Computed example of a mutant assay.
Amino acid sequence: MSSATYVEPAESEPEIALVGGDVTEGDVRVGDTVRRPVGFNAPLVHALLRHLEVAGFAGAPRFLGIDAAGREVLTFVAGEVAGRPRPAWIADEARLASVGRLVRAYDDAAAGFVLPEGVRPFSGLTGLTEQPDMPPAPPYPAELVGHMDFTPDNIVFRDGEAAALIDFDLAKPVSRVDEVCNAMLFWAPLDDPVDADPLLQDVDAPRRCRILADAYGMSDTDRSRLVEVVVLRSRRAWFSMKQIAEAQGGGWARMWQEGAGDQIKRQEAWLERNGAAIETALTAP
């Protein structure tokens, strides 16, 4: 499927640039399709999107093939995305709960996906290696191929409900608690308020974590692991982000140059200070 040539319709459509996100550049809309540069994780992403289509998961674009310009072609997902500046509804708790339900629906659909022979996660991402001083990864096994990039730019809303996910470039095998941690990072948010969007600087982050966990239907075991996992992920993020920026350049390098490494350090310190409050919110009756 990933090598299929996309057959253009008889009538041509204009290309309309799409804006938003931090990394991918060159996305355009053409009629009811989106054209994107083929990413470093394309073999896995194309196979995953095909699986989601067969599984009947409606919350993801369909992969249609490669166009004559060498770009991947996806179905356009209609709806509302939180661009920049963020809309007022970014702090809405009803929308927050719908994010948790969508992540759960995706994870359940992805749980049956098996990597095709010869396909490896991030197979084109060179230079990402373990370093002697890199903190350990969480000790919990992968359960599914997760989306792992639940930024407000990557969730499409319809009628106030999270309805679909876009941009699967960071998909990889992870645990369910990893997926919920990733959603919380962006939507609680789990960050020093100085780095949060102004609309999220004064929210009750532990409460929002509980809303997400409840909407997802998070198990008691995973709730007890979440703070441990998010702290370990944050400690490792500085190393991995630096390597990706050096290996990939582009938007990754721009984010690093703009201070992503310093933000990660502030996030780590904030998590150390607030971890107990988050765990109490998640596990309280």
Rank of each mutant, 00 (worst) to 15 (best):
D195F: 05
P189K: 02
A183Y: 00
S3C: 09
V7H: 14
F239N: 08
D178R: 06
A237Y: 13
S240C: 10
R225S: 02
V203F: 10
A109T: 07
E228Y: 04
A260V: 11
E130D: 15
E72P: 03
I211W: 01
T5L: 12
G20T: 02
I16G: 03
V119G: 00
P198S: 07
F150H: 15
I90L: 12
G31W: 01
S219K: 06
V180G: 05
G261L: 04
A171Q: 08
P87F: 05
G259N: 06
E143M: 11
A91G: 07
A215E: 04
E161G: 08
G251M: 09
P9V: 01
Q131V: 13
R101F: 10
A215L: 09
L102R: 11
L165P: 04
F157L: 12
M241D: 15
P206H: 05
E279D: 12
V156C: 02
A47Y: 08
V73G: 01
V145I: 12
P173I: 08
A17D: 13
D222K: 05
T5I: 10
V177Q: 08
R236C: 04
S240D: 13
G70W: 06
N274K: 09
L115G: 00
G250L: 13
E11C: 06
A276S: 13
P193Q: 00
V81G: 08
L115K: 05
